[in-house]
Design a binder for these strands. Structure first.
Lengths: 317, 317
DNA sequence: TTGTAAGCGTTATCAA
DNA sequence: TTGATAACGCTTACAA
């Protein structure tokens, strides 16, 4: 019992015992058994993180932030991959909850009803990331994909483009909200043309960006600007234009989404919507830690915003 | 006890009990407590995976393979990020081992002596990934980075380039072995020039590829081909050449490493060394599962090889 | 400040 | 085929 206390509340153990205990721990290389701790205490130091993809750069950045914030804390991160499937997500939530995690970080706001019910009745704290809404399960940090796409579309129109198109892949809920933002603004300007919207449920890749661009050009050769659902597509679209000798931004303007590092390095540099992915992961983890320590009152919804980064690729000459 | 058996050895339970138990489990939404299982059984279904980066595309692909193979198996993947630090890796190994994992997948062959000792005395099965050597801790799957870089360099020379350079970032052990392969072949051909080797300990990015290329061009303007330590650098180098109006491959040939999807989509398409990252993760997981079930004798070292993919960017006109 | 006793939910072992 | 009992290594609650 004194050893147990020495590890968790050293201030309640005499200096003498403490140093003796520490010496023995060091000598033996003793490590507490997390299973026994979990069983006895009825809780763990596990923070479960559920993301829809481990390949997607966007979530890789978020994870980096989460891991950075978990570093040197007593929280241990555990990653689950829902592969964009709400059912898989539900399974993961069940698995995680059976482990009595201290907290859960979960992507998006489109959980299944069953998942929401599970989460609501569970005692663990929850942070939803990537998006914001006014109905958080518990806490939430992200930004409005709808507004971000609106702002990007407004940027294209402000640059003087009048026949804007949209390239989209994957079609997860966030993609769809971005498309909705594009439609909103284009329609309001009287510039919406459905045939200039090219989407596919396939996962997005640079290659796919080229294919979608080719498709768009054959369907709507008048297109003079595109908003891409993400940066991979934008890069692929740029390469396709280069292959066809179509001047960017002279003939066609290209705007990506997320502002991956490579956007600024491309030639021409590609405009994009900067999102704060690393910070989102880092702060989600910190919000959880703060809530668990109850050191601060939990702020339920944090809007990280976004910035339209204007570069050469949408610079109408 | 009968319930416990019904879950683990249903064939040893009467059909009648079994169906009754299953009905109750379904009705109650019962999920076994993993902590109690771990404590009582002295082992877990956890497969720990230690990678040096969660951001790097290379490991993202590996992880995708691991998760795919773990899917629908009884093994549960747990990810640790050593951030390219052997000390961090040692800490992670300790944390993992205290959980009594069934197996461990660990990147590379450059573990610290202490880590090696810990792993050797632990009862859990181990797969080292990314590289091969003749001294596996247990099992191993990967390829020779030295040979891969040699082959890529030979390709450059075979295309007629005579003043080859090398761009490298990060300088982890695998990077260094690639550089060694480049040096080998260039030196053997009498074409090695140290000033054409530009490296940095920084993490590699597309932007950095451009900077290294600029650096190389100012130090060794005669350079007519480069082998890049990875595809990000290669893409950045390509963009830098485009910005300067340097023809690729006419004036300078560019070869990447890993053959990320975007290499084929670029304009010009970029030559690279294809490595089998997804398969590596998938098979590592399967090797572990097979060894744990002892269903097959464990093959200690699997060499997945590589392929030099020749594209326009190294096509000397 | 330290220690005792009970119990966390499961599995191993042995007996019925 | 089923069940009783004793661990597994900790933490909680309480007593000394």
């Amino acid at each position: 019992m004194t050893v147990s206390r020495a590890l968790r509340e050293p201030e309640r153990v005499s200096v003498k015992s403490l140093s003796r205990i520490r010496a023995v721990i060091a000598r033996l290389g003793y490590l507490p058994d997390p299973a026994a701790q979990a069983l006895a205490a009825g809780r763990t130091n596990v923070i479960g993180v559920i993301v829809p993809s481990v390949t997607n750069n966007v979530f890789a950045d978020v994870m980096r932030g989460v891991y950075a914030a978990a570093e040197d804390s007593r929280w241990q991160v555990q990653l689950g991959n829902s592969r964009y499937s709400p059912l898989e997500e539900e399974r993961l939530v069940k698995t995680f909850l059976s482990q009595r995690p201290a907290g859960l970080i979960i992507s998006g706001i489109d959980q299944s009803d069953e998942t929401r019910a599970l989460l609501r009745t569970s005692p663990c704290r929850i942070v939803q990331i990537m998006e914001i809404s006014d109905q958080p399960l518990d806490m939430m940090i992200g930004f409005s994909h709808l507004e971000a796409a609106r702002a990007a579309t407004r940027h294209l129109l402000a640059m003087g483009y009048t026949r804007p198109g949209f390239l989209g892949a994957r079609l997860d809920p966030r993609t769809q909200r971005r498309l909705a933002g594009f439609r909103d603004v284009a329609a309001a300007a009287g510039l919406l043309e459905d045939r200039r919207i090219v989407t596919t449920p396939q996962a997005s890749t640079v290659t796919l960006g080229g294919l979608l661009m080719a498709d768009l050009l054959s369907r709507a050769p008048e297109t003079d600007a595109i908003l891409c659902n993400n940066d991979d597509l934008a890069l692929g679209a740029l390469f396709e234009c280069q292959r066809r000798g179509i001047a960017v931004p002279g003939k066609i303007g290209i705007c990506g989404f997320n502002d991956l590092e490579m956007m600024a390095a491309a030639h021409p540099a590609i405009s994009s919507v900067r999102t704060h992915r690393y910070e989102m992961g880092e702060r989600a983890m910190r919000m959880l830690a703060a809530a668990l320590d109850a050191s601060e009152p939990a702020e339920p919804v944090v809007d990280l915003g976004f910035e339209v980064v204007e570069r050469q690729s949408t610079l109408r000459p």
